[in-house]
Design a protein around this nucleic acid. Sequence first.
DNA 1: GGGACGATCGAT
DNA 2: TCGATCGTCCCC
Length: 212
Amino acid sequence: MKSQLLPEIFFHLPTLDLAKALLGTILVHETMEGTTSGIIVETEAYIGPEDKAAHSYGGIPTERTRVMFGPPGFAYVYQIYGMHYCFNVVSGEETAPEAILIRALEPVVGIPLMIRRRGLDIRQLPDGSWPTNKLKLLTNGPGKLAQAMGISKDQYGLGLKDSSLRILPRRNKLSADQIRSGPRIGIEYAEEAREYPWRYWIAGNPYVSKPR
DNA sequence: GGGACGATCGAT
DNA sequence: TCGATCGTCCCC
């Protein structure tokens, strides 16, 4: 039987390739409150030290960014605007401080727990399904999905291959025409780097934060 | 020690 | 378009 875990080499893909390869994989988090999971539908690559938008720009590690300067496949979690957390997959070898921001998920497991963590009022339809227009509010943005998944600084540095926070393989490979790309979000300050088309998402997926 | 700011979100 | 809210970073 095929392993349910990703092979170690997966995380050693070049960062832009890994940012695309992560689309369609499953992010799982097991906590005391319960388990949640979702399909990764949107990613952004940050390629320090040359990328002015990357926290590793300039190549000098800080206490916050030190995990980016280690091997790939570990969690880089940081707080932004004093109130939100963002979750990243460290990529690149130890000489390359790179990471991939996970920007949106399609909820799969633990939807009631996600709803509770997000403080929203979302109810099942009479047929037992969830309304997509409401459900997307759980995880269509990096701060939202971290809150829904229960990800905070406590998960900083966890190995993503097989710990309580892990990424599992997708069942079917996405074809190239199912992947879209464009400039990254919220980095207007980054001069020439703001144009780099390093945001990737699944075409037509309703859970993407900014569908274009 | 102090000041400026941010890979966001949600209300207006 | 704007305010919330505070850890991080960098300068003094």
